[in-house]
Amino acid sequence: MPAARVATSVRPDPVRARERTLLLLATPALLVIGVLFVWPLLRLLSMSVADGTLVQFEKAALDVLYVTVLWESIEIGLIVTVICLLLAYPVAMWLVQTSRFGFILGMFFLLLPFWTSVLVRTYAWMVLLGRSGVINRALRDLGWIDAPLPLLHNRLGVLIGIVHVMLPYMVIPIYAALLRIDPDLRRAAEGLGAPAWRAFARITLPLSLPGVFAGCALVFVITLGFFITPALLGGGRVMMISMLIEQQVREFLDWNFAAALATVLLVVTLAVYAMLGRLTGGAGHAGR
């Protein structure tokens, strides 16, 4: 980018032409976003106040049901994000340092789930985690447990299912951030006598924070909208806000209320996103 700036002052025309070309090339994507995303979003927002009052929001805010479920959704989103982060960071570090073969193998296993539908994977978890599923049967055969462990049809089952789906979304941004870190920085730190953990804490971790932020944001936002996994693995005991929105849209055709719930979810998501940004952004600056 600085190189481009310098070029601007010397020979402005080709660069401006290049910018124009780039803008032109980006236009289809911008149009798609505008037409297929921004416009419907505005329609949605207007639908939530279609009665001319805020009565739909009043219902969403005052009814214990919706407040509780929204809170539970955020809680699940945060737990999933933390678990994914703890699991993904070591994987990403390993991917950066491993051999070419290890990298290909790791990426293969990481991306493999993307070719399987979420529904199939959810049913697979039911086979594994059930009362007489693979895990419980194995543990019983080993004599470690007498009664089957409650792994499914509760919050634990839902968390396992969602973490499994979301893990690649955390690994890949962190991997990309780690890859950009100049390995000489770490070598320099170690050469100056810093133990490995300090080199990690002072150099690797702060420099990887943009990737961590991107991963956390992706995982949290997508998790909030999860629908089929909690419905199937939660056995009905775990309710997420997207399930209630779906109910209003498809079953009761109460689109104004559904729009209000969706708007609340959007605002909460943006708020948490902003908080995350400030948290990691601040830390990132301190590290530089």
Partner: peptide, 19 residues
């Protein structure tokens, strides 16, 4: 009631799996 089912295939599968 250990499972509150959502999709039509579930109760049949739950019985088959002895869930």
């Amino acid at each position: 009631v250990t499972v509150w089912w959502t999709t039509g295939a579930q109760p049949a599968q739950l019985l088959v799996d002895r869930e």
